[in-house]
Measured scan of single mutants.
Amino acid sequence: MTEYKLVVVGAGGVGKSALTIQLIQNHFVDEYDPTIEDSYRKQVVIDGETCLLDILDTAGQEEYSAMRDQYMRTGEGFLCVFAINNTKSFEDIHHYREQIKRVKDSEDVPMVLVGNKCDLPSRTVDTKQAQDLARSYGIPFIETSAKTRQGVDDAFYTLVREIRKHKEKMSKDGKKKKKKSKTKCVIM
C-alpha cells in the first residue's frame, strides 16, 4: 500500500485542523484551538488504489514558523489553505509557496490551493482571484467548507493525484537520464 505524506499549511484560523478532522473523523470542530502540530493517518481508496494518507496539520501562528522547514522537508505534497473571508490569509499563500519551493529546492512541488469556509456569506476573496492565482502557479484550486464537508475529500484526493503525477514524471525523467548515460565512448 502506497503511503502519501501530505502537509496542510496556511495562516492561523483558516480551518486547516477543521478540514483535516472532517476528512479523518467526519465531524466539524467549530471551536478554535490553535494547533502546534498534529499528525493523522487514514486509509482510503483513490482511483481504485488503496493508500495510506499521513497528514500533518501544522501551526499557522507566526511564533511556530521555525518548525516549518522541518515538516516541509518531509512532506510530499501540500494543501495551501486560505479562508475566503480573510484576504490576508490569501496573500500569505505566496509566502508559504515560496518557502516550500526553497526548502524542497524545487520549482515543481505537488500543491493544491484550497479556499476554505465557502459556506460563509462574508467572502472577501473572489473565486476568480483564487483561480487566477492557482493557474499562475500551475496547481489545482478547490473551494471547501469544513463545516458542510463540501470539497473536503476532493481537496485531499486531488493532492494525492498531483503527487502521483509528480512521481510518474520524475521516474520518466530518471529513465531518460539513465538511457543517456548508457551511451559509451570508444577510443581507438
Rank of each mutant, 00 (worst) to 15 (best):
S65I: 05
R97E: 11
N86W: 02
F78Y: 09
V81N: 03
V125N: 11
V112S: 01
G75A: 15
S122T: 13
S65K: 10
D119E: 08
V112H: 01
N86F: 01
V125W: 09
R68W: 02
P121Y: 10
N116I: 06
I100G: 01
D126V: 07
V125M: 12
R73A: 12
N86E: 08
N86C: 05
L120S: 08
S122M: 09
E76C: 14
V125I: 10
R102I: 03
M111S: 01
Y64V: 03
N86A: 04
K104Q: 14
I84A: 15
G115K: 03
E76L: 11
S106N: 13
V81F: 11
C80Y: 09
F82C: 14
E98K: 04
V81Y: 00
V103E: 06
P110M: 02
N116W: 00
L113E: 01
C118F: 12
F78M: 03
E63H: 06
K104G: 07
F78G: 00
E98Y: 02
Y71A: 15
D119Q: 04
M111R: 00
S122I: 08
S106A: 07
R123G: 14
R123Y: 11
G115D: 03
N86Q: 06
D69A: 05
R68L: 04
G77R: 00
F78W: 03
K88W: 09
M67T: 05
Y71R: 11
G77F: 13
R68P: 05
P121H: 10
R123L: 11
T74I: 09
Q99R: 07
M72L: 06
Y71I: 07
K117D: 10
N116L: 15
G115A: 14
P121D: 15
A66H: 13
V109L: 04
E76S: 09
G115M: 12
I100R: 01
P121L: 09
R68T: 06
D119G: 08
R123E: 14
D126P: 05
C80W: 04
Q70P: 10
V114I: 12
T124K: 10
L120K: 08
Y64G: 03
E98Q: 10
A83I: 01
A83C: 05
V109Q: 01
T74C: 09
R102L: 12
M111A: 01
M72W: 07
Q70F: 04
S89V: 03
K104V: 07
V112W: 01
R123V: 12
E63N: 05
G75K: 03
K101D: 05
K117E: 11
G115I: 14
Q70H: 09
R73P: 07
D119N: 06
D69G: 07
Y96G: 02
I84R: 12
D108M: 06
D69N: 12
C118Q: 06
M72Y: 08
K117H: 15
I84L: 14
D92A: 14
M72R: 07
V81K: 01
F78E: 01
I84D: 15
D69I: 01
D69K: 05
K117V: 15
A66T: 11
P121S: 13
D105N: 11
V125D: 12
I84E: 15
K101I: 04
P110C: 03
V81H: 03
R97C: 15
E76H: 13
F78R: 01
M111Y: 02
N116P: 00
M111V: 04
A66K: 07
F78D: 00
V114L: 09
R123P: 12
N116Y: 01
V112K: 00
C80P: 00
E98I: 01
D108A: 08
G115Y: 07
D105W: 04
L113I: 13
S106F: 12
R73Y: 10
R73N: 11
E76D: 15
V81T: 10
C118E: 06
Y71K: 12
S106D: 11
G115S: 09
N116E: 05
G77D: 00
L79S: 00
L113D: 00
N86V: 02
V112F: 03
D126A: 08
M111G: 01
P110L: 02
D126N: 08
F82S: 14
G77C: 11
N86G: 13
E76W: 14
T124V: 10
D105M: 10
E107T: 12
S65P: 10
A83W: 02
D119W: 02
D69V: 01
D119M: 05
S122C: 10
E98R: 04
G77A: 14
Y71S: 15
V114N: 00
D126Y: 08
T74S: 12
K117G: 13
C80T: 03
V112P: 00
T74H: 11
L79A: 04
V81G: 03
V125H: 10
M67R: 08
F82G: 15
S122H: 11
L113T: 01
D126G: 09
P110K: 02
G77N: 01
D108Q: 07
C80K: 01
L79W: 00
P121M: 12
K88V: 09
K101W: 05
L120C: 09
D105E: 10
D69W: 02
S106I: 10
T124I: 08
P121Q: 09
V103H: 06
N116A: 15
M67A: 05
A83E: 15
D126Q: 11
H95A: 14
M111W: 04
T74R: 08
